[in-house]
Design a protein around this nucleic acid. Sequence first.
DNA 1: TGTATACATGTTATATTATAACATTTCAAG
DNA 2: CTTGAAATGTTATAATATAACATGTATACA
Lengths: 177, 177
Amino acid sequence: MSHDHCRNCAAPDLAFAAHDHAPCASEALARAIGILAAKGQRLTPVRRRTLEILLEGHRALGAYEVLSRLATEGFGAQPPVAYRALDFLEEHGLAHRIRRLNAFTACMHMGENHTAAFLICCVCHAISEAPAPPARAALDSAASAQGFTIESATIEALGRCPTCQNAPQLVPNKAAA
Amino acid sequence: MSHDHCRNCAAPDLAFAAHDHAPCASEALARAIGILAAKGQRLTPVRRRTLEILLEGHRALGAYEVLSRLATEGFGAQPPVAYRALDFLEEHGLAHRIRRLNAFTACMHMGENHTAAFLICCVCHAISEAPAPPARAALDSAASAQGFTIESATIEALGRCPTCQNAPQLVPNKAAA
DNA sequence: TGTATACATGTTATATTATAACATTTCAAG
DNA sequence: CTTGAAATGTTATAATATAACATGTATACA
């Protein structure tokens, strides 16, 4: 049994392949609840819905994109509502911030307390959370050579996913539907 | 003779050590001119001054920080003036964008056409450009396992530099003077 | 030398992303 | 219950970034 929220999303060879994502979300939600319970943290309605939105999106969503969905569902309509929920999820390892896109995405390896590495397709905007430990180890070693102690790392690659290898370049930002 | 703009800034074991930075800037400027000339690109007054500002700063500067310095020196006072110069410098490998800080910093290895890895001290905000090839290689290998082709990578670590190992945590953003 | 063209700079205006500050509500502990 | 902490909500504003267009400048070539 995998520790990942979705064996399709998380498996390196399948991350960019199309698959039925519906079961992923409910598995992930269950895991999230367990992780938070173990820390004495609560998955309140806004937080839960925010996580669901990220999971359903299955891509990186901007905070205002999340906010507008929350707002139409009766939650608060002001930016802090989304930012607080997203920050909370990130803080507890349930979501990641994608700095290249100023966006957020559900974590594919919840509870593993990992450094994530993201592969971001600049054509179709699909995102895959790749195995980061080797890159992180290399970074740690470069850091310790300078006497630097890493507390958190951002590793993101922009490029082309398998299906977009030969596509012409499109707009360099904004996530796909 | 080193290919780096400043052997003190660029040497892994000295990057976080205090040193006279004045000669670094003029060396770097000379290198920048050569690099651009080879590409048929011009280091115009705004671009040149922008690069000097980054070099003198010797840390990450926000676009608006750069802009206000340009403006007091008689250049345009509107955001595009700074963003265009910064984007140009980044495009030609003379500066890097630090995504964790929404800021820019002069490149320490001009002309090497490299992936950069940054170590950002969360206490004093010093920045070091660390050797990235091992981390980049690890990332490439993770990517190719998914059939993904990397075009550009962002590798940034937040942590503590040698002199701040034991300092208490300070504000988590905004560069130091 | 002129002049056409591409490039660069400058402007105004606005979009996008994010946080500060504070009022109100909800929860859980005693 | 009631009280303190946490969570949610609001208004307002800060910080970052780009679009669109007007003006100027450099270069190439007639």
